[in-house]
Amino acid sequence: MELFGITFMLGMAALAGGFGNSIVVSRFLDGIVRQPEAQGLLPRMLLGIALVEAVPIIAVGVGIFLLIQGGYFG
């Protein structure tokens, strides 16, 4: 049951991270198609991706930590 909870958390984190990143990247692509000079905003987009990725990756970190603590690893 614990294993199911952890894996469910990891899966939901991956799902949420994928959707969040897709919104950021699609808006950026929309922007540079409409206005090609906006390509200079690429570092800003990467910063946004890093900020969006934070919450799912925290879930992944905590999940792996729980897996190691529970002895499921290795």
Binding site: E53, A54, V55, I57, I58, V60, G61, V62, I64, F65, G74
Partner: peptide, 23 residues
């Protein structure tokens, strides 16, 4: 909390995945 966990979780998950892929 989020400031620290963001950095820790990214690096920790990266190292664990490298270890898994190596072993």
């Amino acid at each position: 909390m989020t400031h620290a966990m963001r950095l820790w979780a990214n690096i920790f998950a990266g190292e664990i995945l490298i270890m898994v892929l190596v072993t």
